[in-house]
Design a binder for these strands. Structure first.
Length: 373
DNA sequence: GATCCGTGGTG
DNA sequence: TCACCAAGGAT
């Protein structure tokens, strides 16, 4: 809570007059050139909430169609709270970070149960809701309820780091309180929501990460890194690790009732979404292609007593890169003349129509492209 | 506090 | 191909 005052004053010692001038320059620009976005047509806390969750680590252009569909399907927090999970996951299909939508429903249920459907108005209370952290709580509190608290996202880190030449590593958790304290001193008490959104618009226009145009920004006169030509030195951030390679076979098994799909476990990657069964190549005793197919066939027959003749599909492996993992998937196919009982694979036989209804991760959509087109 | 959790775009 | 980025949060 108590942020080291000497650390703050190392980077920030603007006068009140300078702060006011900064707010004026920023907000006048925002009034002139701020983006028109679907979630900016009103300040409904539910609308702000849905958009902010979707925008976590996701670009505006990606979010827009999902936001419009989501609000149409689940218009109120009460309808979100009572929606079936499968519908929610389907609405989120392709957006990534799928735990966001399940946490969003938990938060909606907390609103209904603990707050009688009325949103709490302070960032502190909002942050107790599942899936709402310091950034999202500040965004909702400031935009929907005019609370003067800075929303420190990637844009705010970058903008403030450049303006004030803050050389703290923004990937370290101790850094956030410093930016929070400085942002809270800079923010316009009269228009906190617009201030936060203006900082974000600034971060996606003149002060972008790779090709900034700081010399034309509306706050160029307040930009200390522009003054000495060190814009690109900020923000300081440690590099991310390279994704780890994984090698799988995807079993494309077709019976008269459809294709065998599995729902992924409740926790971990792509939780509760549907995919073809994946066999880790490291779990097989051989890497010789012919022996692999024989082993898969044996594996399947053990449980079914149905003869399954697997064959490698003549297609390139599907390669899909996540943040931390890179999957190399070779499809193997088998067509069954009757439908066996399942025990080895805890899956379901899905018709093409059912596959279209099920929530699928993008890597499975890639597999579908190879199989069903 | 380091790691996990997706996807699409860009140079 | 690859590294990096984009309105973060939970564990």
């Amino acid at each position: 809570m108590a942020v080291d005052e000497t650390l703050i004053s190392k980077y920030f010692n603007w006068s009140d007059a300078k702060i006011v001038a900064f707010q004026k320059a920023l907000l006048e620009w925002y009034d002139r050139e701020g983006r028109q976005l679907p979630w900016r047509v009103d300040h409904d806390p539910y609308h702000v909430f849905v958009s902010e969750i979707m925008l976590q680590q996701t670009q505006v252009q990606t979010v827009i169609p999902y936001y419009l569909d989501f609000i149409a399907s689940f218009p109120t927090v009460g309808e979100l709270a009572s929606a079936p999970e499968s519908k929610l996951l389907k609405a989120w299909e392709g957006l990534g970070y799928y735990s966001r939508v399940r946490n969003m429903q938990k938060a909606a249920q907390q609103i209904m149960r603990d707050y009688a459907g009325q949103w709490p108005t302070t960032a502190a209370k909002l942050q107790t809701l599942t899936g709402i952290g310091p950034y999202t709580a500040a965004a909702i509190a400031s935009i929907a309820f005019n609370q003067p608290i800075a929303a420190i996202d990637g844009n705010a880190f970058r903008v403030f780091a450049r303006l004030l030449k803050i050389d703290l590593d923004i990937s370290k958790s101790q850094t956030r309180p410093v930016f929070q304290a400085i942002g809270d001193r800079l923010i316009s008490v009269a228009r906190p929501g617009d201030f936060n959104q203006a900082i974000m618009d600034l971060g996606t226009s003149y002060l972008t990460a790779k090709q900034p145009d700081a010399e034309h920004s509306p706050v160029r006169d307040f930009d200390e890194s522009l003054a000495d030509g060190t814009t690109l030195a900020y923000p300081v951030k440690t590099k991310k690790a390279k994704p780890i390679d994984f090698y799988y076979y995807a079993l494309a098994i077709q019976s008269p009732e459809g294709w065998l799909f599995e729902q992924r476990p409740t926790k971990g990657m792509l939780a509760r979404l549907w995919m073809l069964p994946l066999i880790d190549r490291d779990d097989l005793t051989t890497s010789d292609p012919k022996e692999v197919l024989a082993e898969l066939s044996t594996l399947f027959q053990q449980e079914t007593e149905i003869h399954a003749e697997f064959h490698e599909v003549e297609m390139k492996p599907v390669i899909h890169t996540f943040t931390h993992q890179k999957w190399h998937i070779q499809i193997v196919q088998a067509k069954l003349t009757s439908t066996p009982n399942l025990s080895l694979f805890s899956g379901k036989w899905l018709s093409l129509a059912a596959i279209a209804e099920a929530p699928l991760p993008t890597v499975q959509l890639k597999l579908n492209q190879q199989l069903f087109v």
